[in-house]
Amino acid sequence: MLKHLRGAFSNDLSIDLGTANTLIYVRGRGIVLNEPSVVAIRHHNGHKIVEAVGTEAKRMLGRTPGNITAIRPLKDGVIADFQVTEKMLQHFIRKVHEASWFQPSPRVLISVPCLSTEVEKRAIRESAMGAGAREVRLIEEPMAAAIGAGLKVSEASGSMVVDIGGGTTEIAVISLNGVVYSDSVRIGGDRFDEAIVNYVRRHYGSVIGDATAERIKQEVGCAFAGSEVREIDVRGRNLAEGVPRSFTLNSDEILEALQEPLAGIVQAVKSALEQSPPELAADIAESGVVLTGGGALLRDIDRLLSNETGLPFIVAEDPLTCVARGGGLAMEMMDKRNIDLLSS
């Protein structure tokens, strides 16, 4: 009863609980929060105290003293640390209700990877309830991404969406408000960063952090051989000398570094196309495939997939926020019709 009363003063939220970033969409207000899914924990007398969450905690990644640990509570799209996820969600829910006098108790819709198990779904549900939500609904990530990208998912026509997130790449063929075929591969932005770190270690004998690798990916990273060549100056610790050294990387080198994870994504997309029912495959070939998620911002990834599959690939508008926005629209519809959109 108390939760319902508090709920009257809370907004309904659509949460994209991603491995790299958490986004919150509020109906009528749009995206109200976009922060890294990072929590800094201080260990004090055997107790764990939350030191910082989100952007502030991300700045601490790799720069913490012994008694503080900056961790990412989600791995490969699912919860790796239940308690820390709960604390992080609690912090974010409070943050979007800053003006409220009461402790918020919103209804939330959270997107989950399409191949997540019942245990993983339950962990997400319970951590959201523990964070103060009074009702939790789930939606498959590619479904939310397709709605957010503006694909007409209700029509009897196949639409294919590839959502390249931080931890996973979700591929789905959607028709009549349902997922006809879906696949999830554990390749995403994190694997790209990891590949860049490994490449730099192998070719330059230097170690760089994940944050530097992410910056390299965003600034000069590309996925297609014919792209314009860009350069970036990087500093890393030389393994042989043990001192920081500076060197220059160019986009061709990054393309070489990213070959393995990119090949994994291409393979997953081809496999999805092979397994789509022929009618839907024809629809997809006619209209094209939509790319969403932060990975879609990798330069010329659409050209790579287009070249490899022979189909038109387009990047959705504002691909980072598609899942959260689509979740918001889905929640509105679920609320009106009192139905669930989760296919499995």
Binding site: G150, L151, K152, V290, P312, F313, I314, E317
Partner: peptide, 13 residues
């Protein structure tokens, strides 16, 4: 052409 999303995507590409 198809829906608005695709038109924008085609124009961008």
């Amino acid at each position: 052409l198809h829906s608005d999303t695709f038109i924008r995507g085609y124009l961008r590409t």
